[in-house]
């Protein structure tokens, strides 16, 4: 544990990257997953087929393979997929191609699960709600955005919370793909302080548990606040 206490700045910086990876990927996968869910339940057959194929492909692929694709494959096909154009520095944090590739992998992966969570929510909204919305003349986008999705999101909060908790922990894969996140820091610490392995494991496990607890707490607040009266 001393190893962590003596290097608490590195510990916090590691979790800083973890949090950034999580927040950015969560936001992107929420948007992407929602669009996918809308495509899956929508009236356009081509989009329905595309969205189901996307979900089937991405959900059945291990996350590490998606990471490998972005780190070692995608850039060979399309140069912009090397993400060399990303170069942002905020305080002690550097967001470059490695961070971006990790966000791309995490977002694409999680969006498939977000899509399925929201689709489950959409299915829980009675058909009559959508019919009533169509009956007052709302177009498909309005039916979704005004009536179906707001209700679907409420029903989706518990499965979405699970998806995001998984995402939070999945960020650790980025540790072996060029991002010095908490998991990478933990490996560094255990390498340097082989005698304190257990203390280091516990310190980092507690860090992840703390972050997961925050996500769970937010989820339960939303669930309570959005409960249909």
């Amino acid at each position: 544990m001393d190893a962590v206490l003596d290097n608490v700045d590195l510990y916090l910086k590691g979790f800083g990257y973890t949090i950034f990876l999580f927040l950015v990927s969560a936001a992107i996968s929420l948007v992407l997953g929602t669009l996918l869910a809308a495509a899956r339940v929508g009236p356009v057959a081509v989009l329905r087929t595309f969205a189901s194929a996307y979900v089937a492909l991405v959900r059945n692929t291990p996350l590490v393979i998606i990471f490998l694709f972005f780190q070692l494959g995608a850039g060979k096909i399309f140069d912009w997929l090397r993400f060399g154009w990303v170069d942002i520095h905020i305080g002690p944090f550097d967001f470059t191609s490695f961070f971006t590739a990790a966000v791309a992998a995490l977002s694409l992966y999680s969006s498939a699960f977000v899509c399925e969570s929201i689709r489950a929510g959409v299915n829980s909204v009675g058909l009559g709600q959508a019919e009533a919305a169509r009956a007052i003349g709302l177009p498909f986008s309005g039916v979704m955005s005004q009536v179906v999705l707001p209700q679907a999101f409420r029903a989706s909060v518990p499965p979405l919370a699970s998806t995001f908790i998984a995402l939070l922990k999945n960020t650790s894969v980025a540790g072996v793909f060029g991002v010095l996140d908490a998991a990478a820091r933990m490996k560094g610490f255990t390498n340097d302080h082989a005698d304190q392995r257990w203390g280091i494991f516990i310190a980092f496990a507690l860090g992840y548990m703390f972050l997961v607890a925050i996500v769970s707490a937010i989820a339960s607040v939303l669930e309570r606040r959005w409960r249909v009266v």
Binding site: G128, Q129, A135, I136, G137, L138, Q146
Partner: peptide, 30 residues
């Protein structure tokens, strides 16, 4: 089609009020 439906009012057997909106919001949404 959406424009046409706006011209045709529909009342359902099971009411189908928007469960997440207030009574006032239900009426003003359209």
């Amino acid at each position: 089609l959406a424009n046409l439906r706006a011209e045709v009012g529909m009342v359902f057997q099971s009411f189908n009020l928007f469960a997440h909106k207030t009574i006032l919001q239900n009426v003003t949404l359209g």
